[in-house]
Design a protein around this nucleic acid. Sequence first.
DNA 1: TTAATGACCTATC
DNA 2: CGATAGGCCATTA
Length: 103
Amino acid sequence: MENTFEKIYQAVIKIPKGRVATYGQIATMAGNPRWSQIVGYALHVNPKPGVIPCHRVVNRLGEVSQAFAFGGENMQIKLLKEEVVKFDSDGRVVLSDCLWDGK
DNA sequence: TTAATGACCTATC
DNA sequence: CGATAGGCCATTA
């Protein structure tokens, strides 16, 4: 149980700066591709703020979830913008260029 | 213990 | 091609 969360956190923390990963990607790295929902839940509880870059986790569309809104989704995107993450006019992350390869 | 929910994804109509 | 339904796992009530 906690082990599962730890795996997810480890995967999220492993995301290099300027790069984003999708829930499915992290779930697969954690050990099961069906944990996508659990990944969202794990970040929802976010037991280790400051250690887990939740803003680097986006859905498969490259869009940050609205539930993030820990200060405004726009701020979330802006934060990523401060990194080297690229954004398109749709407000989505350019997965084709910033999607984490997993290594 | 059972049922319902959720920061999701995939498949089907 | 666009929208809808279902399913998976874990947590909460």
